[in-house]
Design a protein around this nucleic acid. Sequence first.
DNA 1: GTCACTGCAAATAATTTGCAAAGCA
DNA 2: TGCTTTGCAAATTATTTGCAGTGAC
Lengths: 141, 141
Amino acid sequence: MINVEDKIQELKERCAKANMRLTPQRIEVLKMIASVNNHPDAETVYAEVKKVMPSISLDTVYRTLTSLEDLGLVFKVDNELAKTRYDADLTPHCHFICIKCGAVHDIHIDNYIEAPKESYDYGKVLQTNLQVKGICNKCRG
Amino acid sequence: MINVEDKIQELKERCAKANMRLTPQRIEVLKMIASVNNHPDAETVYAEVKKVMPSISLDTVYRTLTSLEDLGLVFKVDNELAKTRYDADLTPHCHFICIKCGAVHDIHIDNYIEAPKESYDYGKVLQTNLQVKGICNKCRG
DNA sequence: GTCACTGCAAATAATTTGCAAAGCA
DNA sequence: TGCTTTGCAAATTATTTGCAGTGAC
C-alpha cells in the first residue's frame, strides 16, 4: 500500500526542484491516484477529484497527469505511446520505451521470461513482455 | 528473424479455423509487419502496403490489424488499452491485461523483476513492468 | 450464390491547445 | 509582481462504424 503523505511530500520536493508550482489541483489528483489500488483513467480521476474540488476541469486533470508523469510520480499502464504499434514477433521479449518521445527499442535477452504462475488464474496467457520505461539518451540531451 | 512464409501459412490455417477469409489485404498487411523488425503503426503499415496494393484503404488496415490480433498473429506494443490508465505504485510490478476487454489485474510477485543490463544502454531507467497479455476468464465465457 | 470483407465517407472519443483570468512563489 | 497554471471552448488526431458494392469459398 502506498503512503499518501509520503507521496505528497515527494510532490512538494520535486515541484520545487523543477520550478513547478504546488497547486491544490496537483495535490488532489495525486492524492486520489495514490489512495486507490486500481488503475484509474483520466475521466475516473476527474469524477473522483470533482467530489472534493468541484471547480476542477477535465483538461486540468489531463495536464496534471502529464505533469505528475514528468515528475516521475505516476506511470501510465500499458499506454506510453500515442499511436498503437504492432509487432509480429510473438516470442516473449523486452522493450525499452521512452516516456518522452515514445521510441521503442527491442532488448535481446538470453534467459526466457516466464509468466508468473498467478497469471494463469486470470485467463489464457498469450504473450509476456517485460517493458522497461525510462528516458532515452536522445531525450536526455 | 521471423519467417514470413510460415506466418502466411499460419494465417491460412487460422482463417480457415475461424471462418475468416484469406484476402490479399490480410496477406499483404501481415507480410509487411512480419518482414520489418521495428514496430510500425497503422499509418506506416498503410503507407508501405499501398506501394504494392495501391487500392487498399486505411480503415482496412485498421480492421485487418484487429483481425490479425484476434487470430493471435500480431500483438500491440504497449497499447492494449483504449484509455490511458495511471498507477502511482512505482515499484516494479506485473499486470495481466485482457486483450478483449482491457481489464488490468495486478499480479503480486515475490521475486524482484530487474531490468536487463542492456536497458541502461538506451537511457535512464525509471520503471520496469512485466506485462502478461491474454484473454481473461470473463471474456473466454 | 452467400456471406464476410472492402472502400468510401462520415462519426466518435480520447486527448491537446489557445487564450484570458487567476493564484502560487 | 511575474510567470506558471487553470478553466473554458474549440481543435486535433487516432480509430471506428454504417452502408453498398465486391470477391473468397
